[in-house]
């Protein structure tokens, strides 16, 4: 079957989609977007986290056919048009929160969603927001640090913009 959807602002079409196929497979194998990672295929690891009509979801658990007409954002959609990194991406690098990098796309999507909803998250809120994303390299301290750093920088930018206005 054919699936039409908008990915990172662009209309896309996937053909020959098997009805039981996941949106993750369509993104990676049919649309050439390998940013969302394929690991557990059961919603446990969060490495395939994307936004579907604004909601944070595991792409491995979305049937591709259900995404017909939907608006999808993947990690490839976070950076600016000119390929400048998004502030959350910058913060992950600066805080040393990227090790092997496999979990990073999912964590970036979850962080982006959290900070859009809650610009000043308490630590408990950060932990809850990232509870569906596993990192197996080290631990989560640098990752938590990256989220705090992104929040602080955004707050500083807002203050500067207000001060300058």
């Amino acid at each position: 079957m054919r699936v039409n959807l908008t990915v990172n602002g662009r209309p896309r079409t996937a053909d020959d989609v098997w009805p039981g196929e996941s949106l993750l497979y369509v993104l990676r194998e049919r649309l050439g977007l390998p940013g969302a990672k394929n690991a557990c295929e059961q919603g446990e690891c969060g490495s395939c986290t994307i936004r579907l009509d604004g909601d944070l979801v595991c792409a491995c658990l979305v049937a591709a056919g259900s995404a017909e007409g939907a608006e999808v954002t993947t990690v490839e959609g976070l950076a600016e048009e000119d390929a400048r990194l998004a502030p959350v991406q910058r913060a992950f690098i600066d805080a040393g929160a990227v090790q092997c990098g496999f979990c990073t796309p999912g964590l970036l999507m979850a962080t982006d969603e959290l900070l859009a909803r809650d610009p000043h998250p308490a630590d408990a809120d950060i932990r809850e927001a990232l509870s569906g994303n596993l990192c197996r390299c080290t631990g989560y301290e640098s990752i938590l640090g990256a989220v705090r750093l992104a929040a602080e920088r955004a707050a500083a930018d807002r203050a500067a913009a207000e001060g300058g206005a």
Binding site: E41, G43, L61, A63, S66
Partner: peptide
């Protein structure tokens, strides 16, 4: 029937189930 897919898609991904038809309620 297919609602959120958080149970059913796991079954499909792992080939534990191969129904003839999915009925997407989305």
């Amino acid at each position: 029937p297919l609602a959120g897919g958080t149970d059913l898609m796991v079954e499909l991904n792992f080939d534990r189930r191969r129904p003839e038809r999915l009925l997407d309620l989305g």
